[in-house]
């Protein structure tokens, strides 16, 4: 029974990791660099929701639009001030710049909100019991919300004109340009979607555990591992990768110290890099 309980936790963690990994994957496929500030964009989202929760007094789920607003602003500031001016440089300069921006976001949050951990809502939730499995109401919200978002993303990518254009750019940037797809507008759309997903992931992470300034940075490794596992540039792969990473991380606590959860994500990443660097779903060849 313990296994099933851990699988439940794994699905919750996996939902959060997947939402982050989709964004990393999309950004990589359109902008061609690993966005190291993505974890901290999640943190911005979580604290954005906290603003909504404390100021307006709504639940974190209702405060998600506020979270998205914060995260989108954070990302667009970086796009206009850093990433766009640096775009003609080598892509690794963008990576380093995003690493610097990660630090900027994190210290800004610490400056405003303080370094102490916070929670959206104190008090104990009454969990649901299914046999021996215990599920908190928050976990339903997290998994349900993630499923909803994945469906919406799927419809966007497979049905809408701009979603298809995004896939086209990821497939073949030059041909997309030649076909008249407006590259810059697509870049902005990519940022907004990636930031929105990161914001939701951050809110979910805050609901699952608690908020602190390094919460997103700590999750960056599993998020990248999921994106690589799924094949970078493949949003559907990132979803699968997220759940694989999340479930493996939680199941590993049966045999090893929970402190090493991240080592499990890392081990999976390393394993993938050795046997199949393009990921399970054959991502962008590097």
């Amino acid at each position: 029974m313990e296994v099933l309980q851990l699988v439940v936790y794994g699905i919750v963690t996996g939902s959060i990791v997947a939402l982050g990994a989709i964004g990393v994957s999309l950004v990589f496929s359109i902008l061609r660099f690993a966005h190291f500030a993505h974890g901290d964009v999640m943190t911005v989202g979580a604290y954005g929701a906290l603003v909504g929760v404390t100021l307006i007094g709504v639940t974190p789920m209702v405060a998600i639009p506020v979270a998205i607003l914060f995260a989108v602003v954070a990302v667009l500031v970086a796009e206009f001030c850093l990433y766009r001016p640096l775009r003609s440089s080598h892509p690794v300069i963008l990576l380093i710049s995003s690493f610097g921006y990660a630090l900027i976001l994190r210290s800004a949050i610490q400056l405003v909100a303080g370094p102490a951990p916070q929670v959206f809502k104190s008090g104990i939730q009454i969990p649901y019991r299914f046999g021996e499995i215990v599920i908190r109401p928050d976990h339903f919200w997290i998994v349900g919300g993630t499923i909803l978002i994945i469906v919406a993303l799927h419809l966007f990518l497979s049905r809408s004109k701009f979603g298809k254009a995004m896939r086209a750019m990821s497939d073949n940037m030059d041909l997309a340009r030649i076909s008249g797809i407006p590259a810059y507008r697509m870049i902005l759309i990519t940022w907004v979607i990636a930031a929105a997903l990161a914001a939701v992931a951050g809110v979910f992470l805050g609901m699952d555990t608690r908020l602190h300034p390094v919460m997103g940075w700590r999750l960056l490794l599993p998020v990248f591992a999921a994106a690589i596992l799924g094949g970078i540039g493949r949003p559907y792969g990132a979803i699968a990768g997220g759940f694989i990473i999340g479930i493996s991380m939680e199941l590993s606590t049966m045999v090893i110290d929970p402190g090493y959860k991240h080592a499990v994500a890392f081990a999976l990443l390393v394993l993938m890099l050795i046997i199949r660097p393009t990921g399970l779903f054959r991502g962008t060849s590097l």
Binding site: K164, R167, A168, S170, D171, N172, L175, A176, S179, I181
Partner: peptide, 14 residues
Amino acid sequence: NVFPSMSVQENLEM
């Protein structure tokens, strides 16, 4: 000169 992961129809739409 094609979008390999997309279907024929989607290539034409692009």
